[in-house]
Simulated assay, not measured.
Amino acid sequence: MSARQTRKQAAAATNSIHSPKATDEDDNGLMNGNGSAHKGLAREEAKENIFLFWPNVIGYVRIVLAVASLYYMPLHPRTCSILYSVSCLLDALDGYAARIFEQSTRFGAVLDMVTDRCTTSCLLMFLACAFPRWTIIFQGLLALDFSSHYMHMYASLAMGGAETSHKNVDKSRSWMLNLYYTNKTVLFVFCALNELFFIALYLLSFSSPLLSPSLLNSVGEASAAQLQAGGQVNSSVLDQIFVNPYSAAALELARANKMDSFWPWVLAGVSFPVMAGKQIINLVQLIKASKWLAEGDLQARVAQGLPRKQD
């Protein structure tokens, strides 16, 4: 064989290795043979546990902290305020985690909203009991909060589709809601200061004789004994793990650990305008969602030929 023929054969072998046809054949071989196994592994790896996504785990921690704050709410304002505040601040962290880990889910969005509504409602219920003369105000705030968010969520799903987020509000529908939901800074400030106002009122119920003088009166031994008897946990193991907030020792600590009302008044004064603005946003949200649903009802009635003309 001549040197020229040898060079031609080597070049042909090299071209066959790098040719698209050879590559396609190799790929087809993988897909027809071992490629199916690779695809099966990919499908198996794609099975994720939504409930264990980091944003949702943070949501569970929020719930635990919120329940703990409710446990200490009647008599331990400092402990309750710290636990409740941390639970609220984690609301911003779960959204950040969802973006970082690309784990935004509908379950997480609903879990976040339900947790917000429930924790705020529980605090408003306590304030209604602490300030009986203002009960109707707290009841109205609770009703507005629930109704506006439910109506807005339902309208987003019914009119925008199942894949539409309740935070996707077009400017043409409401510039106020668009700014509120799309600007993360605005959303955080309004939500945080709204909760801060109610926390400040909660602290004032323990510290301000002007607003709640009855809570500053000393509790007699008979009342303490009644509270202790009514609040006992029927388990010695639980008694060792959880301190009973209604025990006589806890009542003595609560009376001896009274707070000054200066800073709660400052916090209430600073956060009140934002809280009022948040209620206006809730009202606008309720109205806009109602109108959006009514538009859908009109379109559905036209499609059905309603109202039918009666001769």
Results as ranks from 00 to 15, higher is better:
T120Y: 03
T120N: 05
C122Y: 07
M125V: 14
M125H: 11
M125R: 09
F126Q: 14
L127V: 03
A128D: 02
C129A: 11
C129L: 11
A130K: 00
A130I: 01
A130T: 00
A130Y: 00
F131E: 06
F131R: 02
P132H: 02
R133Y: 08
W134K: 06
W134D: 11
T135H: 07
T135E: 12
I136E: 10
I136A: 12
I137V: 15
F138A: 03
F138M: 04
Q139E: 08
G140Y: 02
L142P: 01
L142K: 07
A143Y: 05
A143V: 13
L144Y: 02
L144M: 14
D145W: 03
D145M: 09
F146L: 14
S147D: 04
S147A: 11
Y150Q: 05
Y150N: 01
M151T: 11
H152I: 02
Y154S: 08
Y154G: 02
S156V: 06
L157Q: 10
L157A: 10
L157V: 11
L157Y: 08
A158S: 13
A158W: 07
A158R: 14
M159H: 08
M159V: 15
M159S: 12
G160P: 01
G160D: 04
G160Y: 03
A162D: 12
A162G: 07
A162H: 10
A162W: 13
T164P: 00
S165I: 07
H166N: 14
H166K: 14
H166S: 15
H166Q: 15
H166T: 15
K167D: 13
K167P: 03
V169D: 06
D170H: 14
K171V: 13
S172W: 05
S172G: 09
W175N: 12
W175Q: 11
M176G: 04
L177A: 04
L177F: 05
N178P: 09
Y180V: 06
Y180L: 06
T182P: 09
T182G: 13
T182V: 13
T182A: 15
K184C: 11
K184I: 12
K184D: 13
K184E: 14
T185K: 06
L187E: 02
C191N: 10
C191E: 14
C191Y: 05
A192R: 02
L193P: 00
N194W: 09
E195Y: 05
E195M: 08
L196V: 13
F198E: 07
F198Y: 14
F198R: 01
I199Q: 03
I199F: 01
I199G: 00
I199T: 05
L201E: 10
L201V: 09
Y202V: 10
Y202C: 11
Y202T: 08
L204I: 04
L204N: 03
S205K: 01
S205T: 00
S205L: 04
F206G: 00
F206Q: 01
F206Y: 02
S207N: 09
S208G: 10
S208Q: 09
P209Q: 06
P209N: 06
L210Y: 14
L210V: 15
L211F: 10
S212G: 02
S212D: 07
S214H: 06
S214W: 05
L215W: 11
N217W: 04
V219R: 04
V219W: 02
V219G: 00
E221G: 06
A222F: 05
S223N: 09
A224R: 09
